[in-house]
Amino acid sequence: MREVDLAVLREPGGGLVVAWMATLRRDLMLRLRRRSEVMNPLVFFALVITLFPLGIAPKADLLATIAPGLLWVAALLATLLSMDSLFRADFDDGSLEQLMLCPQPLALMALAKVAGHWLLTGLPLALMAPLLGILLSLPTGSYGVLSLSLAVGSASLSLVGAIGAALTVGLVRGGVLLSLLVLPLYIPVLIFGTGAVQAAVAGSDVAPHLAILGAMLAAALMLAPWAIAASLRISING
């Protein structure tokens, strides 16, 4: 008992940073143990992008004009696909309840879980997007912006999607409902994400788009954790 108290007291914030890092590390480790779960969104992303030239026409100029939108929509759907599993396993084995019981604020602990999700979903998608951009003959010079906009945008997507995941985690068939709840809220991120890539293709200034994406991320970082925490409480006590 004494040792535990001392360990908590060693840090002035009541062990907040320790708990936060522990949650993040645990989530990353659990995800990395099940590689397929990390790989699935990436494979999905690549597959969807492969379908478009087959479904439309393999004309380079046509594909290049629609490439920013296609890449963004496919990446968005890939994130959405992985969203359902964010709290599912923890809900099933009861560790989500333990997370709720711990003295640190649930909103910040949920933020650690979202951060873990983004590190292994949003970030890999952003890094992989340029490869798929080559397949769609995306004009050179827009690859960096594509990755950057996806990295910033997918963090907002993870945060907003986590609200939907937390609301539907207690439901048996939450997956379809989750997309109905979350997709309308994804639209602003999609608009400015594709806007940034299109601006880069057109050679105009990309800074405003990226700034707005960053502003949306800041707003989501500030507000979404509270909504996630409230939703988790409803789903667990429900």
Binding site: I163, L167, T168, L177, L181, L185, P188, A227, S235, G238
Partner: peptide, 30 residues
Amino acid sequence: ALRGAFTHRDSGSRAASVLAIVGVINIPII
């Protein structure tokens, strides 16, 4: 749909309420 998906009415009410608040914050942005 979210309200209808819960078997327990009170949870459905609270979930729908949270979503309504999230939605109304997003409407101006959208």
